[in-house]
Amino acid sequence: MTFDAHVCENGHVTYPGHTLCPDCGEKQTDTLDLAERTGEVVTWTQSTATPPGVRAPNTIAIVEFDLSDEDVTDEFVRAIGQVTSEDVETGDQVEPVYVEELRDPEAGIKVPESQEWDGYRFEPV
């Protein structure tokens, strides 16, 4: 399992990926794995009114990963995801941890087979 951001021919980076780069319209041809990196919390919320199949409360953060040492054009890329702890603040350093199931695929409006999702949560370090 990887936590892939996507890189176009001009070095623009997005998470998640897109068919064409939103910045320049070129194809995204490369990936950059965020799984082993540390990021910084830009903002967070704790949601108590969650949909069927989602944990409650659900703490979510937008996290910024510094890319200034990478051979890409963008200085950083942001991602969003659940936080492992209910105790988080803006500016905290976090790292991705793998979880097998982010929400219960049997619940909710979507077809179960379309939402069997593993992925990464953010853990404060």
Binding site: A49, I60, L102, K110
Partner: peptide, 13 residues
């Protein structure tokens, strides 16, 4: 969606 994002949670963020 897979992280349980809702419109209210975007508002909170």
């Amino acid at each position: 969606y897979k992280h349980g994002l809702t419109l209210p949670s975007f508002a909170g963020l």
